[in-house]
Design a protein around this nucleic acid. Structure first.
Lengths: 220, 220
DNA sequence: ACAAAAGTGTTCGATATACACCCATGT
DNA sequence: ACATGGGTGTATATCGAACACTTTTGT
């Protein structure tokens, strides 16, 4: 039937991390047209017999060398005209990785780079809109779930955790209230160790009791 | 490249309404294989140059005669093996319609029927899973947004509104607390009219001041 | 007068918010 | 000793939860 087309299906990924106490996202530079040299979200075509979420994980690893992470589906963008080459349906995933991730330029020689959110370059396709969407999701998720663990290393201080929230929300929160609230949730396990070596009082380290997804009814 | 396939893209819709103070969803009966005679979500293939959300609206209208409604994207299901005919990526939309909707059997002579959620038949494909997903979304949305307007007629009583919440959540709520909360949100406009004609004290009618989507930080 | 649903307030506990000072370490 | 961030408590306001009786209509 002429009426139906077979659109291409791609899977893209928005990855966030906290680097230098600022929220950053991963972009790759396009080597060919369309949008040659423009920055874009990592992504690519779906392979045969590949689950959607697996494709997202694979693209991320291939193009940016990013491995262990939190992945969930964000949204599907598929309006006509979003790719000049033809009809493309893009299923976008949303990923969180702990702070200091080494990026290897991808196997296909595209360059990958962490960009501070708020200082982004012009993006290819409708990727700016997609990023805005992802950012809204991140802010919301941080409020009512415990996903913050995915942005932190195994061991962290309460100040580290607070800085994650501040970076994502773009505003300061009160230290005493933050700690009271976060400890009352009972999701953290205080460790015996402290972080030493700075010119200051050592800070107690914590880890998450569980990394299972938990929905809280409200969070700050 | 052999490695990439061109999957088919379909758009399905989960429609909810409140009928007889119970939550219902719309299903159509399949006329051909696979899953002949089984009940399934309304849906179909994406047309050329058609937006995803437009496809959802069109399918709903074609197959069930349902018009004016609330529509948002729910999730995309695309794992291999979910359709025996081959790789199919299904973008699922989520719709809400006000209570008494006349259903015309669709143009392709499939029968359409409202089923009470909780008394559903066996479903085709992975549609049971999809419905579970949609139900979770509905429950959550009702908590933190004002989408309840989409399940009600233009004018309604506070008891009508309360019954929407009770039907979706499957539990009773306290009338005094419900009214206090709902009125304090300031989203309702009390009308001069009352609903009369029953053997009882007439109830004041209300309408929503706005049907714009509003996100509340918390709701019940 | 009766049946049926409409309408209405108060008390109590939990939770959010605002706010300032001492502590432990490295140099 | 000093600079740096770590760590802690209290008072107030707001919000959610529990709870029962009177009012208005149609028959």
């Amino acid at each position: 039937m002429v009426k139906f087309e077979s659109p291409k299906v791609t899977v893209d990924v928005v990855v966030f991390t906290i680097y230098n106490n600022k929220l950053h996202t991963l972009l790759i530079q396009r080597k060919g047209p369309p949008f040659k040299d423009r920055w874009a979200l990592p992504g690519g075509f779906l392979e045969k017999n590949e689950k959607l979420v697996a494709a997202a994980g694979r693209e991320l690893f291939e193009e940016a060398g990013v491995g262990h992470l939190y992945l969930e589906q964000l949204y599907t963008f598929g309006d006509p005209g979003r790719d000049p080459r033809g009809r493309v349906i893009t299923v976008v995933y949303f990923a969180l990785v702990p702070a200091p991730v080494e990026i290897s330029a991808g196997s296909d020689a595209k360059s990958a780079k962490w960009w501070q959110v708020g200082k982004l370059p012009n993006l290819a396709f409708d990727h700016k809109k997609i990023l805005g969407y992802a950012l809204a999701r991140l802010r919301a998720k941080l409020e009512y779930t415990n996903v913050a663990w995915a942005l932190l290393p195994e061991k962290f201080t309460l100040t580290d955790l607070q800085q994650v929230y501040e970076a994502v929300w773009g505003k300061k929160v009160d230290k005493r209230n933050f700690r009271k609230k976060v400890l009352s949730l009972g999701l953290l396990k205080p460790l015996k160790e402290k972080r030493t070596g700075l010119h200051q009082r050592p800070a107690r380290l914590y880890s998450f009791k569980s990394k299972k997804k938990i929905e809280l009814r409200r969070f700050f």
